[in-house]
Amino acid sequence: MSHMEVDRGLALEARGLRRAFGTVQAVVDASLAVPPGHVTALIGPNGCGKTTLMLMLAGLLRPDGGEVSVAGRDPLAEGAAARVHLGWMPDVLGTWDSLTCEETLTTFGRAYGLAREPARARAFDLLRTVHLSEYASQPARVLSRGQKQRLSLARALVHDPEVLILDEPASGLDPRSRIELRELVRALAADGKAILISSHVLSELDEMVDSAVFMSKGATLGADADAVVEKARRRWLITALPGTDVRAVLGDLGRPWEPVGDAPERAAVHVVDEADAAALLAVLVGAEVPLIAFGPAGSALEQAYLTMEEDRR
């Protein structure tokens, strides 16, 4: 990409952002950095300030303090010059119901300064990308929620921005569309885009993102959060046939374990690496434990998220 030649190091960067609405301090201290070609997840409970942070990054909301840099530009000072490098997909589904999908995207292309014909060509191009080609001349009101979500994603891509901010892009999508979204996000990252994505479907993010930024009570959690994710990645689940006491077996082996529910046939262990896991599996099979499942304990991000939630209680 011609305009990607300049190596700006970080495509999207925020340092010490804060913002209050009246007496409510929505974002207290948020910092993050996304290099080009990188997908970063923004994770946190409802009301932790994710959307407010994303609005500040998108240049829609003025922070009370802190700095933002989008493709090396300051959206607060430079306005449109920074905004054209950024694609924003809001969590609120706003579509002009009476406009067709093609008109919607063409209008946005032109709003970013494209001429009419290139904007139209780009619109059809993107409708193919998000599998809405057959709706090109249909008004947006006939679209389902998931289809509107895809149209909204196409809208964020219309000017081929270097930085993408996607607020809950997966909500309302069917499983097929989620997989397509994941593939599209990875393809965009491979293309050199810096992508910040928030979602509640953490298992989805696991396979999509390169790193995660956790947010709690308006603040991003720094390196300690990364450690929690790393720890979560090494948590494995062991399940044996009912009636087996896996806990006792692990105790005999001198291996620390954590209970999983009340069932004694299930337990969680921490492994050093995959070789360690393989060795443990060999030992358990050797001890004739009737195993039926042995593997990583679901989504690492989900694990980390839940761990941090517990920490805060």
């Binding site: 998108a58 240049g59 449109a80 905004r83 054209v84 924003w88 809001p90 609120v92 709003a111 300064g113």
Partner: peptide
Amino acid sequence: APLQVTAL
């Protein structure tokens, strides 16, 4: 808002 984030 989607209109405000454009170059308009």
